[in-house]
């Protein structure tokens, strides 16, 4: 039924990761409502959902920039994206 969607294991894993992030956010919101708002180093008022968005979008651009400027393999941008994600959740 879903053959037209041309599923592959890596893309399924990618969407499973996004879904897991959203479920985690929902669980966190149910346990600690309010979204943990704060003003970070960029001077932006962010909730944990905003920080997830900034992390995911920024990571996409880290991968794209690496692909455009350096090429494969993508282990280095993965490490950069993880460090970036930690920084976003810690300080932004």
């Amino acid at each position: 039924m879903l053959t037209w969607m041309a599923w592959t294991w890596p893309t399924a894993a990618f969407f499973a990761f996004i879904a897991a992030c959203l479920i985690t956010m929902t669980v966190l919101e149910l346990r600690r409502p309010g979204g943990a708002p704060r003003r970070g180093v960029l001077g932006l008022d962010t909730t944990r959902g905003d920080r997830l968005f900034i992390w995911l979008l920024g990571s996409a651009f880290i991968f794209l920039a690496w692909l455009g400027l350096v090429g494969t393999p993508l282990w280095a941008p993965l490490a950069i994206a993880l460090v970036y994600g930690f920084s976003v959740f810690r300080w932004v």
């Binding site: 037209w4 969607m5 041309a6 592959t8 890596p10 893309t11 692909l67 090429g71 494969t72």
Partner: peptide, 26 residues
């Protein structure tokens, strides 16, 4: 989701796809 799936594959029609990784992005 379908576009994401297509972006990492090559097709010549007939609903047959071949894995190409991040080649198209590059």
């Amino acid at each position: 989701m379908t576009v994401v799936n297509y972006s990492v594959q090559e097709t010549f029609g007939d609903n047959t796809f071949f894995w190409s990784g991040v080649l198209w992005f590059e």
